[in-house]
């Protein structure tokens, strides 16, 4: 099972983004280094959820934001490791919509959030059958 190691400051940014966006979903990118089965998450970049309609149940990131994230990774000498988003008032389990939209290789962090509190945090990666497998998360 792949392992995600997240710096405390990075995690704090994701958690605050999820709380600030509540009851809507937040989203963003994270960056770091991959070494074998481990991924060290060193930086985070919150981005705007541009989903039209109900942002309490859906998120969308614009292609321009994606291109900026790739350029950011390049300029920092880091890998663009994945995407985080929140599930307000829902478990930190990927939906079928999450799975159908997911890219291979990326880690997908999901934060389950209630008003003013993070309830759970998980991370997932697609396998070769396009099914999500859970990653372990360690905090630095």
């Amino acid at each position: 099972m792949a392992e995600l190691i997240i710096e405390q400051e990075v995690l704090a940014v994701m958690e605050q983004d999820a709380i600030n966006a509540f009851p809507n979903e937040c989203c963003g990118f994270f960056f770091g280094k991959e070494e074998g089965e481990s991924r060290l998450v060193l930086e985070v970049l919150p981005v705007e959820n541009t989903k039209e309609g109900d942002q309490r149940r859906r998120f969308k990131i614009e292609p321009e934001s994606y291109m900026r994230a790739e350029r950011h990774a390049l300029s920092r000498g880091l890998d663009l490791l994945g995407i985080y988003h929140s599930h307000p008032l829902h478990p930190a389990i990927p939906s079928e919509h999450d799975r159908s939209q997911a890219m291979p290789w990326f880690s997908y962090i999901i934060l389950s959030v209630e008003e003013n509190a993070i309830v759970d945090l998980t991370s997932w990666q697609l396998n070769n059958s396009r099914e999500f497998e859970k990653e372990t998360i360690k905090q630095l």
């Binding site: 979903e25 859906r58 969308k60 994606y66 988003h85 939209q101």
Partner: peptide, 12 residues
């Protein structure tokens, strides 16, 4: 030519 994943998802 840039290939860009359309990033989306959510609860439902």
């Amino acid at each position: 030519i840039s290939i860009i994943p359309a990033i989306a998802g959510g609860i439902a």
